[in-house]
């Protein structure tokens, strides 16, 4: 194992343990946490066994393992960007409602 693998796997191991502890404490596994856990596990598997990524690339007809990782990153980036944008839109709607209520409460009549 290379020093990078040791370092990265230690870090990922701690994150995975932390996530599991949270799930056990809350006694609830949400879809979002499950996806996040899968991402950490996938990353750990890819770092621990680069050959496996190469093999997956072969199955998918991509050729290089590095390209599989790159494509996954692009897809993940798009998903995260949309997730964050949706959060921002929801927040803006809440802010709009708050400003609207304030405007109605402070209505004034001319003359």
């Amino acid at each position: 194992m290379t020093p990078f693998q040791i370092l990265a796997l230690t870090l990922l191991g701690l994150i995975i343990v932390g996530e599991c502890v949270q799930v056990i404490r809350r006694r609830k596994l949400t879809g979002f946490v499950a996806v996040r856990l899968l991402v950490w596990l996938g990353a750990a598997a890819a770092i621990a066994s680069p050959g496996a990524v190469q093999q997956v690339a072969g199955w998918l007809g991509i050729g290089r393992g590095a390209d599989v990782v790159l494509y996954l990153f692009v897809l993940a980036f798009l998903a995260v960007a949309f997730y964050l944008y949706a959060g921002q839109v929801r927040l803006r709607r809440q802010l709009t409602e708050a400003i609207r209520r304030l405007a109605v409460l402070e209505a004034r009549r001319g003359g």
Binding site: I99, R100, V104, R108, R109, G110
Partner: peptide, 29 residues
């Protein structure tokens, strides 16, 4: 300027939200 007109109701968004938001505020009121 609007408040200077007799009987006109004036509501104020503290920040600019857009025409759609302003319409909904006025309709709610």
């Amino acid at each position: 300027v609007a408040l200077a007109h007799e009987g006109v109701w004036v509501l104020r968004h503290i920040v600019n939200l857009g025409q759609g938001a302003a319409l909904q505020t006025g309709m709610d009121f």
